[in-house]
Amino acid sequence: MDVRQAKVNAKEAEAVSSLLSVLSEAQFTCIQIGPIFPVKHGSEGNQVIAVRNLTQLEMRALSRCPEIQTRPEKALGALATAISAMADAGDGGDDDDGGDAMPRRAV
């Protein structure tokens, strides 16, 4: 890893840490902040926290389907479904912008 990428990673980790600290009181949350997509759901003692760096395609899907963020426990699956629907409609479902692979499954 080069020095520039290490600096980017450190800043990103700091931002995520700050964000999780702010969201610590929330039992359920799902919000897009630029390319960062924290999802938190579950019950006390059994919480799931996921933080995803969104690809351009995923950000476009969230912009077109903001209702994805209304059910944190289903958000990542719903995002995959939206991307799959965009691909089926010929709306750039196969762009490779270096982001994480997203499984395509029904919610």
Rank of each mutant, 00 (worst) to 15 (best):
A106P: 09
S18L: 12
P103F: 05
A13W: 08
E73F: 05
V22M: 07
D100R: 09
C30Q: 03
Q5K: 05
P66A: 01
R52Q: 04
I49N: 00
R52C: 02
S84P: 13
I83A: 06
I33P: 04
A82T: 01
F28E: 10
A78C: 08
A6V: 07
I33Y: 12
P35E: 08
S17R: 02
V107H: 02
N46H: 14
L54W: 03
T55C: 11
K40L: 02
T70V: 08
I83E: 13
D100H: 09
T70G: 08
A80D: 02
I68W: 08
A87V: 15
E25H: 10
R4T: 06
A101M: 09
G99K: 06
G99F: 11
V39G: 01
A101L: 09
T81Y: 11
R64G: 05
S17G: 03
L57R: 14
E73H: 07
P38W: 00
M86A: 12
V8R: 14
G99M: 15
S17P: 04
I31R: 00
C30I: 01
E14Q: 11
E44V: 11
I36N: 05
S17D: 05
M1R: 13
I33R: 08
R105W: 10
E12V: 11
E67F: 13
D100T: 14
A106R: 15
H41T: 10
E58K: 05
A101E: 05
V3P: 10
E58I: 12
G93R: 08
E44A: 10
F28P: 12
K40Q: 02
E44D: 10
R104W: 06
G92S: 14
V3Q: 06
M86L: 09
R60H: 12
T29E: 04
E25S: 11
L19N: 04
L79N: 02
E25D: 15
D95V: 08
T29V: 03
G98L: 03
N53I: 09
V3M: 06
A82K: 04
K74A: 15
A50E: 07
S84N: 14
R52A: 02
G92A: 15
V3A: 13
G45M: 10
V107I: 07
L62T: 07
A10I: 12
G77K: 01
M86E: 05
K74T: 12
A78Q: 08
V51L: 03
A26R: 00
A61L: 13
D88K: 11
R52F: 03
P103Q: 11
A26L: 01
A50S: 10
T70F: 06
A6H: 09
L79S: 04
T70A: 10
R60N: 08
Q47D: 06
M59N: 06
R104S: 13
P66H: 01
S21W: 06
A106N: 12
T55E: 14
T70M: 12
K7P: 15
P72R: 00
A26Q: 00
R4F: 07
L19C: 01
D96P: 02
G45S: 09
L20M: 07
D91E: 11
